[in-house]
Design a protein around this nucleic acid. Structure first.
Length: 299
DNA sequence: AGCTCTTCCTGAAAGC
DNA sequence: TGCTTTCAGGAAGAGC
């Protein structure tokens, strides 16, 4: 599944191909993942790519009028979310088209940008440049940019489970199931722990673990667990370095205990029961925190 | 506020 | 063997 490291890898690849190129033609297959496909097909031809950015898990392709006599007031961005199985590739137009390819952006150099998405959980839309700030404002902080202090403020006083908060794009943008689980393992924190119960030290460990996991994954060009490929159609390698994700039943690399999988916050969550002790279970090395028997039901 | 359930969609895998 | 059911999951929305 494309998360921050995968999207970052795709964006870096697109940056080598797209800026300076103009869109000649747009075609769509199925369009149920596209917001206003007719407008996109009408507005993109003649536009030139100015830049490619990543906003969390969104890919943001900046477009400006290619003809110099047109006032550059009409800048906008094509924004794409890859969902679960989305792929964005740049390839010569003559190459064969894989199944489930539903978006074609023909470029002026004999190549085209293609969008392939088996399950069509992805999203595609255009946003005028004037609306980009609002779009970005709905998202949380970049995990690779947030400071330890900001991280502590965002997480410190919440009662939700750690896993739920890590996946919440309004708090941090870009983390998905893989990197949530991998970060929690490295911080030695159970996914179901209530965030406000964490010590300062634990929050700092989590902040560091998130950064480190994401940076390592980017260096490995992302995780290819199902359909993920980069803009050249190549798979990533970080799946070979996963320590808990989809390793249930296998021994923990650190302590040999069997990795377990449970549902937390509606998502399958993989963890080591020994390295990441469950909340309120006896067993942790004794901190002063005693689990409460009863809590008030309403809030 | 935060949890669970549902919806979207397809293909793989499990069940019968 | 072959058909049917279940599951997986990012995100958004409903309902509790």
């Amino acid at each position: 599944m494309p998360e921050l490291p995968e999207v970052e890898t795709v964006v870096r690849g697109l940056r080598l191909s797209l800026p300076g190129r103009s869109v000649v033609e747009v075609r769509f297959g199925k369009t149920d993942f596209v917001e206003d496909p007719a407008a996109i097909a009408e507005r993109l031809p003649g536009m030139r790519v100015s830049d490619v950015k990543r906003l969390g898990k969104f890919i943001c392709i900046g477009l400006e009028p290619a003809a110099s006599q047109v006032p550059p007031l009409l800048k906008f961005a094509l924004i794409i979310h890859l969902g679960m199985t989305g792929q964005l590739t740049v390839i010569r137009s003559a190459e064969s088209v894989p199944p489930h390819t539903h978006g074609f952006f023909v470029l002026d150099d004999g190549r085209e940008l293609r969008y392939t998405d088996i399950r069509r959980f992805g999203r595609m839309l255009v946003v005028p440049e004037s609306g980009l700030a609002e779009f970005t404002g709905r998202l949380g902080k970049e995990p690779l940019e947030i400071s330890a202090e900001e991280f502590r403020q965002s997480f410190g006083s919440r009662r939700a489970r750690l896993k739920a908060l890590l996946l919440d794009q309004r708090i941090l943008r870009g983390i998905g199931n893989i990197y949530a689980d991998e970060s929690l393992f490295r911080a030695r924190l159970h996914p179901a722990r209530i965030t406000e119960n964490l010590t300062k030290k634990q929050l700092l460990a989590l902040h560091g673990a998130v950064r480190k996991v994401l940076e390592e994954a980017i260096l490995s060009r992302g995780s290819s667990v199902s359909d993920y490929v980069d803009s050249n159609g190549k798979r990533g390698k970080f799946q070979l370095r996963h320590r808990v994700y989809q390793r249930d039943g296998k021994p923990c690399f650190r302590c040999k205990a069997k990795i377990r999988r449970v549902i937390v916050a509606g998502r399958s969550s993989h963890f080591c029961p020994r390295c990441q002790p469950a909340p309120r279970s006896r067993g942790g090395s004794g901190k002063a925190l005693k689990p409460r028997m009863h809590t008030d039901e309403h809030g």
